[in-house]
Deep mutational scan, measured.
Amino acid sequence: AIERGSKVKILRKESYWYGDVGTVASIDKSGIIYPVIVRFNKVNYNGFSGSAGGLNTNNFAEHELEVV
């Protein structure tokens, strides 16, 4: 089962992080479509409006993740 702290591989082909491994930061139990927040070591794009980097978290559905 996917739980907080799990290392997961991203299976969503259109994702910037496809094939990468991230760490589960949290799981939303409220029934939303993409409840699993995954944190990565790298950012997906340069930040804007003065922020240092881009996003390094993204929401995924459990079926888009594979525990490694």
Rank of each mutant, 00 (worst) to 15 (best):
A1Y: 08
A1H: 11
A1K: 13
A1G: 10
A1L: 12
I2T: 02
I2N: 02
I2M: 08
E3S: 13
E3Y: 07
E3F: 07
E3D: 08
E3W: 05
R4F: 10
R4W: 07
R4E: 14
R4C: 15
R4S: 10
R4Q: 13
G5R: 02
G5A: 02
G5C: 14
G5H: 04
G5V: 02
S6N: 08
S6L: 10
S6T: 13
S6Q: 12
S6Y: 10
K7N: 07
K7D: 04
K7M: 13
K7L: 13
K7E: 06
K7H: 12
K7R: 09
V8A: 01
V8L: 00
V8Y: 00
V8G: 01
V8W: 00
V8M: 00
V8R: 01
K9F: 01
K9G: 02
K9P: 02
K9N: 03
K9E: 03
K9H: 04
I10A: 01
I10M: 01
I10C: 10
I10N: 02
I10Q: 02
I10W: 01
I10R: 02
I10Y: 01
I10V: 11
I10T: 01
I10H: 03
L11R: 04
L11D: 01
L11I: 06
L11V: 06
R12C: 14
R12E: 04
R12D: 05
R12F: 06
K13V: 12
K13F: 13
K13S: 09
K13Y: 10
K13N: 06
E14N: 11
E14I: 05
S15Y: 04
S15V: 03
S15N: 04
S15T: 02
S15M: 02
Y16W: 07
Y16M: 06
Y16K: 04
W17Y: 05
W17V: 00
W17A: 01
W17K: 00
W17D: 00
Y18G: 00
Y18S: 03
Y18I: 02
Y18Q: 00
Y18A: 03
Y18C: 09
G19P: 01
G19D: 07
G19W: 07
G19S: 04
D20V: 12
D20T: 12
D20N: 09
D20Y: 11
V21A: 01
V21P: 00
G22E: 02
G22T: 02
G22D: 01
T23C: 15
T23A: 04
T23Q: 05
T23W: 10
T23L: 09
T23H: 05
V24G: 00
V24R: 00
V24H: 01
V24W: 03
A25I: 15
A25N: 05
A25D: 13
A25L: 14
A25Q: 14
A25E: 14
S26W: 11
S26A: 12
S26C: 15
I27W: 05
I27P: 01
I27H: 02
I27Q: 01
I27E: 02
D28V: 05
D28I: 10
D28G: 05
K29G: 10
K29N: 12
K29T: 13
K29A: 10
K29W: 11
S30M: 05
S30T: 10
S30E: 09
S30D: 07
S30N: 11
S30W: 05
G31Y: 09
G31C: 15
I32W: 06
I32V: 13
I32S: 13
I32C: 14
I32H: 10
I32F: 07
I32M: 12
I32E: 12
I32P: 09
I33F: 11
I33W: 07
I33K: 13
I33A: 12
I33Y: 07
I33P: 13
Y34K: 06
Y34V: 04
Y34H: 12
P35H: 09
P35I: 14
P35Y: 13
P35E: 12
P35F: 14
V36H: 00
V36W: 02
V36R: 00
V36E: 00
I37M: 13
I37T: 14
V38Y: 00
V38K: 00
V38H: 00
V38N: 00
V38E: 01
V38I: 04
V38S: 00
R39G: 05
R39N: 06
R39L: 11
R39M: 13
R39T: 11
R39H: 09
F40E: 04
F40C: 09
F40R: 03
F40A: 03
F40W: 00
N41L: 11
K42F: 07
K42G: 12
K42Q: 08
K42N: 12
K42D: 15
K42E: 14
V43N: 13
V43M: 08
V43C: 15
V43S: 08
V43W: 14
N44Y: 15
N44A: 07
N44K: 12
N44W: 15
Y45V: 15
Y45G: 15
Y45Q: 15
Y45W: 09
N46R: 01
N46G: 11
N46V: 06
N46H: 13
N46Q: 09
N46S: 05
N46E: 15
N46P: 15
G47K: 04
G47H: 07
G47R: 01
G47L: 02
G47C: 15
G47S: 08
F48P: 15
F48I: 14
F48C: 15
S49I: 12
S49T: 13
G50F: 03
G50M: 03
G50V: 05
G50I: 05
G50A: 06
S51V: 12
S51Y: 04
S51R: 01
S51N: 10
A52Y: 10
A52V: 12
A52E: 14
G53L: 08
G53A: 12
G53P: 11
G53R: 05
G53Y: 03
G53F: 04
G54I: 09
G54K: 04
G54D: 08
G54Q: 07
G54V: 05
G54L: 06
L55G: 08
L55C: 15
L55E: 13
L55K: 09
N56H: 08
T57F: 11
T57C: 15
T57W: 15
T57V: 09
T57D: 07
T57R: 04
N58V: 10
N58L: 08
N58H: 13
N58M: 14
N58Y: 10
N58T: 09
N58F: 09
N58S: 15
N59K: 07
N59L: 05
N59Y: 08
N59F: 08
N59P: 10
F60A: 01
F60R: 00
F60G: 00
F60C: 04
F60I: 03
A61W: 07
A61K: 05
A61T: 03
A61S: 06
A61P: 02
E62Y: 14
E62M: 12
E62K: 08
H63V: 12
H63F: 13
H63L: 05
H63K: 06
H63I: 07
H63M: 06
L65M: 03
L65Y: 01
L65R: 01
L65H: 01
L65V: 06
L65P: 01
L65S: 01
L65W: 02
E66K: 09
E66R: 07
E66W: 06
E66V: 09
E66T: 06
V67K: 06
V67L: 13
V67T: 05
V67R: 05
V67D: 03
V68F: 05
V68E: 05
V68H: 03
V68S: 03
V68D: 02
